[in-house]
Design a binder for these strands. Structure first.
Length: 708
RNA sequence: GCGCGUUUAGCUCAGUGGUAGAGCGUCUCAUUGACAUUGAGAAGGCCAGAAGUUCAAUUCUUCUAACGCGCACCA
């Protein structure tokens, strides 16, 4: 006898423990019958490792549901299904979280020695990691915890070091004093992706600069400006010669300026003449590089003016700007001011204005072709695999050739477009939390390796951009789990993640995966969006509309939450979820439970079964449709078809027909078993519980490994 | 500036070359019959606008509008 109601609180933990104890989460455990056409075929998903700096939120629940559904489906189909879980130390993100935690405790981040900070953050991260693992279990994730990896595992770090070394020997990473994005608040550089550029209202100033008139939005950077640049074809300035010098009165007295002609100038913008600040502007930097001009730092690392500003030295740039404008105005050098709308780069975390600075950093070359040297030169086979392609071209050709498919298709174009305009990737971060860059310096010499080459060598102070490590995740994990895993499970099948990290992560995985292994890291990229509430709002603590997945799972059952996350949400769009929707699917779980009670406790045994054939045909058709949608990665359709069939065909019609004697009990049981199988990937707990309790014939020990 | 997406029931969203679907909401009826965390039924949509292709368009094409998003070194 089944209980009157389905009590998920009593069932879920028990079922999950039994699954885990069975060992079936490991791909090698389940042996389908030998005639299963998929027997022995690997199917692999590497879980995007959640940032171990907090709890799992609804977005995590979405990826857990999606990936678990895919894995369970394939496992039931007979594949050797591996879902490899992990956790991300999430360098900068976690350091920011930890800094805030320290501030709440009245401590200051930089008051603590580096080694101690590292240890504290490690403890914090490992505690979160273990909490997240229990949350994954609560959500029903059938991932193989025996293969779990952490981005700071020693063996993972060794893979990352090795990649860096190879890139270095191939000339694809280099250390250079180039323009970087500096956040004065966080005291670190950021990659181009970590900079956001909202459009702001500002003022555009026109100043007299000797015989020229120049325009700028940043007067505070102009102290060191001693070059005025015009376009070579600009008729207004045709009487001036490149390199010509002239005297002029400027902020702090007379200076000598030099005229430069450069094609990059837009003659229609401003006055067609501009002064440049090569240390604090990437475009100016490029001009200075082209003409071999001096570069001078004007603003320090805290955003204050340096001694070159004389009376303004030590002032923060935000305060200095009006004072400088006033001084120029008093000197009669201000021509006019204009209201001006332009994009201002900001730190994506704290909104602090990004100050471009020159600083020696490590960069990954995106468009340069490898030039193997030293030991690398000997590896001819490797060079052949690479075909001497740049990292960008490796990824571009892989995607263009269809080695990587995108769900949805439109992301492919977005990906290609982004790849076309790539700039070199700054991977140095001035933070403590992460993998220390394995570069050692002695005078002009550079050594790349994990350990010091000897006396007198000093290691680079910086750590890698987190994405440099996680960009190697698919191969780094499989190279360091069980022997033979890499050979068997790489390339993986699906990478399911949010489209917001398409460039941060997916692009880097394809580039670095191709580079290290010669193969793409995954065959399909399945992208989901940002979970929103029923009014289409982003969820945020300040709006108070956050849905805690574990909380609602406790209240309505994990199966209901999973259904609500998948149903009606097409891949690539922002999924919408609400408590009402979850309730609706909780009712569905109840419905399934009551259907089981009818089939095994109340159903009619007599009758002619006149509709058996029709019922079976319809069942077969639905099963085929659901399978097809699975194979097309249209989980929302597979889900809805199964849902609709079970409720509105089996419950509404087939059971009613049985009451009239038109469907035999044997057929009813067969169909209901099929319903459990079909629903299991979506609603694993209630289906498994019923499977365990009901007296089906020739049962497997778990529905999880029942043949689809 | 360039590119992309969205526009379908009161709300949030699926879907489709041939009498439109889900969740929630609304209304009516049914309560010792598997199921009130229910069942049966109903109301509610010229599928943004215009043109084109087609025997047939909500679905394909083009244009328009509104909203949203991404990318870009215009000082």
């Amino acid at each position: 006898m089944l209980d009157k109601k389905y009590d998920w609180k009593a069932v879920e933990g028990k079922i999950y423990d039994a699954w885990e104890k069975s060992g079936y989460f490991a791909p090698e455990a389940h042996q389908p019958s030998a005639d299963n056409p998929n027997a022995g075929k690997p199917f692999t998903i590497i879980m995007p490792p959640p940032n171990a700096n907090g709890s799992l939120h609804i977005g995590h629940a979405l990826f857990v549901a999606t990936q678990d559904i895919l894995i369970r489906y394939k496992r039931m189909k007979g594949y050797k299904a591996l879902w490899l879980p992990g956790a991300d130390h999430a360098g900068f993100e976690t350091q920011v979280v930890y800094t805030k935690k320290l501030e709440r405790e009245g401590r200051k981040f930089w008051d603590t020695p580096r080694d101690q900070l590292y240890q504290e953050i490690l403890d914090f991260t490992l505690a979160n990691k273990s909490h997240m693992e229990s949350q994954l279990r609560a959500l029903g994730a059938s991932c193989d915890f025996s293969r779990e990896k952490f981005t700071l595992d020693e063996d993972i770090k060794k893979v990352v070091y090795e990649t860096f070394k190879r890139l270095y020997d191939d000339g694809l990473v280099y250390r250079g004093a180039r323009i970087i994005n500096w956040c004065a608040r966080h005291q670190t550089s950021l990659s181009d992706l970590e900079v956001v550029s909202p459009e702001l209202d500002d003022t555009f100033y026109y100043f007299k600069y000797g015989p020229f008139e120049i325009a700028t939005a940043r007067p505070e950077t102009k102290f060191g400006d001693k070059y005025v640049v015009v376009h070579p074809d600009d008729k207004r300035y045709k009487d001036y010669k490149h390199g010509q010098k002239f005297e002029l009165e400027w902020i702090n007295g007379p200076i000598t300026a030099t005229l430069i002609k450069d094609d990059s100038i837009d003659v229609d913008f401003g006055t067609g003449a501009m002064t440049i600040t090569p240390w604090h502007d990437s475009a100016d930097f490029e001009i200075a590089e082209r003409h071999g001009l001096d570069k001078e730092q004007i603003i320090d690392w805290q955003g204050r003016l340096l001694p070159i500003a004389q009376e303004f030295a030590g002032q923060h740039i935000s305060k200095a700007r009006p004072a400088i404008v006033e001084k120029l105005e008093n000197k009669g050098l201000l021509v006019k001011k204009e209201a001006y709308k332009h994009t201002v780069p900001q730190c994506y975390k704290c909104g602090t204005a990004i100050e471009p600075q020159i600083r020696p950093q490590w960069f990954v070359a995106m468009t340069k072709k490898p030039r193997p040297k030293g030991a690398r030169l000997a590896q001819r086979i490797w060079a052949a695999i690479l075909r001497r392609k740049s990292l960008r071209d490796l990824a571009l050709s892989a995607v263009k050739k269809g080695e990587v498919q995108f769900v949805s298709e439109r992301f492919k174009n977005e990906f290609l477009r982004w790849m076309e305009n790539l700039r070199d990737w700054n991977i140095s971060r001035q933070i403590v939390w992460g993998i220390r860059i394995p570069a050692w310096y002695k005078g002009e010499e550079v050594y790349i390796g994990e350990n010091s080459p000897g006396e007198g060598w000093k290691q680079d102070e910086d750590v890698f951009d987190t994405w440099f490590g996680s960009g190697q995740w698919p191969f780094a994990t499989l190279m360091t789990t069980k022997k033979g895993d890499f050979e068997e499970f790489y390339p993986t099948d699906v990478m399911e993640t949010g489209w917001d990290i398409l460039f941060f992560w997916v692009a880097r995985m394809i580039m670095l995966g191709k580079y290290r292994t010669g193969k793409v890291p995954f065959k399909t990229v399945y992208l989901h969006g940002l979970v929103r509430d029923k009014d289409r709002q982003k969820m945020s603590k300040s709006k108070g509309n956050v849905i805690d997945p574990l909380g609602v799972a406790e209240e309505y059952g994990t199966d209901a939450v999973r259904m609500a996350l998948i149903a009606g949400n097409a891949p690539g769009t922002d999924p919408v979820i609400s408590e009402e929707k979850i309730k609706g699917y909780r009712n569905f779980a109840t419905k399934i439970w009551n259907m089981a009670k009818y089939v095994f406790e109340f159903a009619k045994e007599e009758g002619d079964g006149a509709l058996d054939k029709k019922v079976l045909d319809e069942y077969e058709k639905v099963r085929a449709d659901v399978s097809r949608y699975f194979d097309e990665y249209k989980l929302h359709l597979a889900c809805e078809i199964a849902y609709h069939y079970v409720w509105h065909t089996v419950a509404d019609d087939v059971i009613e027909a049985n009451k009239r004697g038109e469907v035999s009990l044997a057929m009813l049981k067969k169909i209901f078993r099929g319903c459990l199988i079909m629903l299991h990937p979506f609603m694993p707990f209630v289906t498994e519980e019923l499977y365990q309790k009901l007296p089906f014939e020739d049962k497997e020990d778990f529905l999880m490994v029942e043949n689809w």
